[in-house]
């Protein structure tokens, strides 16, 4: 049973450069509305999310305001039809697609392409 699940579950992959997609985890490990963090080979950290409709998002895990790598632990939501995460430190919100901070237009974090394969 466990075996079957593992083999049929889709893999989440992150695009880390032009032609590299890094497999990160099984689709089923992502609870809709909750994030996880992935470690890239060069030490960068990516926060991965999945929304209610199954869409996947990836942005840099580091909170640019506080410095800690914690965005994956924030609460997500929908603002004017777009998904965001609110930092668990001081609650600034970041658009999950673009990485743009919704509470300070001068701040943006890197956004990553994510796919299920």
């Amino acid at each position: 049973m466990t075996l079957a699940l593992e083999t049929t579950d889709l893999k989440i992959e992150l695009r880390i450069d032009e032609d590299t997609w890094l497999p990160v985890c099984d689709m089923s490990t992502l609870t809709p509305g909750r994030g996880v963090a992935a470690l890239l080979p060069d030490g960068r950290q990516v926060a991965l999310f999945r929304d209610r409709s199954g869409r996947l998002y990836g942005i840099d895990n580091r909170d640019p305001f506080g410095g800690a790598a914690v965005l994956s632990r924030g609460l997500t939501g929908t603002h004017q039809g777009r998904a965001f995460v609110a930092s668990p430190l001081l609650k600034q919100r970041f658009d999950l697609e673009s990485g743009q901070c919704l509470d300070d237009e001068t701040v943006r974090v890197t956004a990553y392409e994510v796919r299920a394969a």
Binding site: P32, G33, D51, R52, G74, L75, T76, G77, T78, H79, G81, A83, A86, K91, R93
Partner: peptide, 8 residues
């Protein structure tokens, strides 16, 4: 939708 960080 997915709600928000206030109501959740």
């Amino acid at each position: 939708g997915d709600g928000c960080e206030v109501c959740k």
